[in-house]
Design a protein around this nucleic acid. Sequence first.
DNA 1: CATGATTTTGAATACGTATTCAAAATCAAA
DNA 2: TTTGATTTTGAATACGTATTCAAAATCATG
Lengths: 341, 341
Amino acid sequence: MKRVTTEDVAKIAGVSQSTVSRVLNDYPYIKKNTRDKVLAVINELGFTRDEIARSLVEKRTKSIGLILGSISNPFFAETAEVIIERAQELKYDVIVYNTGHKDENLEQAINLLIGKRVEGIILTSVSKNYTEKIKKLHDNGFPVLLYNSFLDIKDVNFIVMDNNKGARLAVQHLIKLGHKKIAKISGPSKYLATYERTVGYKEEMMENGYEIDEGLIFNSEFSYDKIYSFTKKLLKKKDRPTAIIAASDQMALAVLDAASNLNLKIPADLSVVGFDNIRLSANEFIGLTTISQQMDQMSLTALEKLIFLIENKETSSSSIQIFLKPELMVRKTTGPAPVQD
Amino acid sequence: MKRVTTEDVAKIAGVSQSTVSRVLNDYPYIKKNTRDKVLAVINELGFTRDEIARSLVEKRTKSIGLILGSISNPFFAETAEVIIERAQELKYDVIVYNTGHKDENLEQAINLLIGKRVEGIILTSVSKNYTEKIKKLHDNGFPVLLYNSFLDIKDVNFIVMDNNKGARLAVQHLIKLGHKKIAKISGPSKYLATYERTVGYKEEMMENGYEIDEGLIFNSEFSYDKIYSFTKKLLKKKDRPTAIIAASDQMALAVLDAASNLNLKIPADLSVVGFDNIRLSANEFIGLTTISQQMDQMSLTALEKLIFLIENKETSSSSIQIFLKPELMVRKTTGPAPVQD
DNA sequence: CATGATTTTGAATACGTATTCAAAATCAAA
DNA sequence: TTTGATTTTGAATACGTATTCAAAATCATG
């Protein structure tokens, strides 16, 4: 499949390469006659412009990078969907990487994306270990946007939920329902969001006069199997918790699964709260009580802000820092605390 | 952020641009001395090779396109995850598009990807309307792989499940459980897979001595809301079906949701079978009976076959056509037919 | 139809890299 | 040391496009 170039088109149309290029770019000063001739040849040969070559001279690739923790988690999938669709509308394409929450993959993904000259990157799930790397990118004027992920860097662009508040909402809700033994299963401790939520949980517990039982706070990888088996172990204990706050809706599903395996009734025996409000949570068959992140809006904003950063790189210098308000969505997986023996 | 080029590096290191390029590409004949000098400068300046320029001369982009129907459907999300991760290992990057099952988006995505000079495309959800377009690509020697999607084109590469057989498995299972009124909610009729499954359904019904009730066969878009409200209407009827075969697990979830809303017990009042076997289906809390597509293997194979096609474009000419065997996964959403009044 | 303004075109160049070709430097052997 | 082979380097060019700059063609006006 020999590539057809503007040169080829030019030769056949009997004009110069520059003229062909002009036709492609809708230059004003082209005789209708030649334009038609060129377009005809373009059509005939099935010419398509080589965007790679174009990128080289334009110094623009019209593509962005999207680095996700794990696409199979609906939180990321739904995010990706919104971002990718909106990007297509804006004529950007999206190179997606999936880190599987592994730091080395994140590092590699960033490097490859920079090499491919993407014009900006949306990053989810950035661990504390990468603070320096992100800072350097940002300081170099490269548009980076942290999504649902927070780092302690001055001026870096991010869009996140107020994690502390989110955790507090979950705790408040459960306390109101009479729960005293509330477990918290968090994500890996390398994420700052994890830390903040844990702090929120602790603060809210204490402000309500409960002591913090460190034995009820866990960090875990985002692996279904790990959460599942871990939860089972937890729920088999004599003094098991009556409620569990999971770090994400997906985790919550694994928790529900474990509970189901032990024949615990939800919410009669156990209340479960998730985080994210993925679409599935609203499914009446499941009805997961959760802390909503306004995902659709968050991801749409993320994309648009990134594009804004890209297209106003020179002029604007202010950074974008958005905190979204979390919201409690009460559904079927939470209920009054059971009277324990 | 002025870009650092090999030229810049060369100047500072006191060598020629070609030498820098050679160092980057691990050419054998470079004096240790100069190599070290160059590498030092590269490091110091934070040089990263411009893969765009490289692509232009190498005539390779090391990137592929992935066109999905809807990433928020776990079937596609899980597929994407496997493909993207394996691609990263093989040093390819993946430009993802989401068509939302809209033909015009598919068309645009293909064009943009071709423009970006991706070396191959994995396509899901290709409607019949695009047979010609795909055929042309394929005939031009461009590596295209249809994933879970079938078109009536000679020699085109695809990897699909045996849809007819899959539908038959579902029907067999339900018939064995005593169901007589089995509804089939299919995807849009523009997909050949839809057609094949419907045929499988009909054939199996007839071979078991049941008459085909066209009033029990429906085509619907993959929209949660549509499926939900449609199913509710269907289930409110006096002579409602006792079992429903959905076109995908995600659809099945909407069906379950509708049933739940009507207070129908699953599977006592209604049996539901899905298609795909997304991970969530195995969740004990849900336990969806479904037809498994061996998704992980299917997507891994898809990527590797596409790469094979790319890297052996010249030599090999045989096409890749893989039919995977569907498998029935019996779980909690199917049970004996209720005795109806 | 001459003139100047305007429209239309082509030749040449740049983008950043890899590679060819030839020259320069180094080395080994006599 | 000289020779011939070998290693190491640089200059020039190509990849496919966009754009500058100047020349050619066309037009309007007197």
